[in-house]
Design a protein around this nucleic acid. Sequence first.
DNA 1: AATATTAGCAACCGCACTGTC
DNA 2: CGACAGTGCGGTTGCTAATAT
Length: 252
Amino acid sequence: MAKAPRFNKNGVKKGAWSEDEDNKLRAYIQRYGHWNWRLLPQFAGLSRSGKSCRLRWMNYLRPNIKHGNFTKEEEDIIVELHNKLGNKWSEMAAYLPGRSDNEIKNRWHTHLKKRSQIGQTMLQSEHVGNQKPNHDIENPVENSELELQHDLEILLTESPLSSSSSSLSSYLFNGSDSGATTQVTPQLVDYKRNFWTEPFSWDIDSILSSSDDNFFSPSNLFYPVCSQDMIMDEFLSSSLDSYLEYNDPFIN
DNA sequence: AATATTAGCAACCGCACTGTC
DNA sequence: CGACAGTGCGGTTGCTAATAT
């Protein structure tokens, strides 16, 4: 499916990534982070452009990334978000943890665009049912957030999996599972703004010095709740595995 | 069975934005 | 303030697998 591997005149490899290249990139970033994408390939021992490395990491190798098998809820959210945001794939990705902007974009073009067009046609022939809350007209940005939340809540509540979905909705917007309030909290806003753009690295010093036992809890990074011990285990096993299995990228 | 067409998706490309000097 | 480098985003390409003829 991917493009066939080839080299350009500068000796930079293009096309599909091999397993060995994936391993090198993953091992390097897990050990050192991505401090400079342009220089990273040299240090990681890869004949790739920094851009290509970044794309591969963001779309495929990043921890917690999901592939394929979009759920009905995810597809509904994408359709709803597209109605609100247009082709803002990266913003949409912020609402779907584990999904890359590229994957959402592909899903839209291959599956959901047609479905949405059909839905729009049907909607035009019936009166709008769920009236939106009357938000502050002076604050269009906040209104947009609130309307989006409202639409998602309706959408998720009507879903066959509504119990878990509404929890997700309230979790997204309140940072908790209570679902009692409808206020957009800073967690979501910060999460939306920073999740994909902040450099990822296993900052072991921060993990060790943190007094928060749920260092990667949703209130911090919106990662699944897990303890320091779990993080340490994951870090140590992945680093050790990478080191032993793929060897040191500096040596190779 | 062979060929043509379509669907799905990984990866590339070009542009825009931001920060630094 | 302008030039440059680094990064991110959205559109597009091209390869492969699945399906149709």
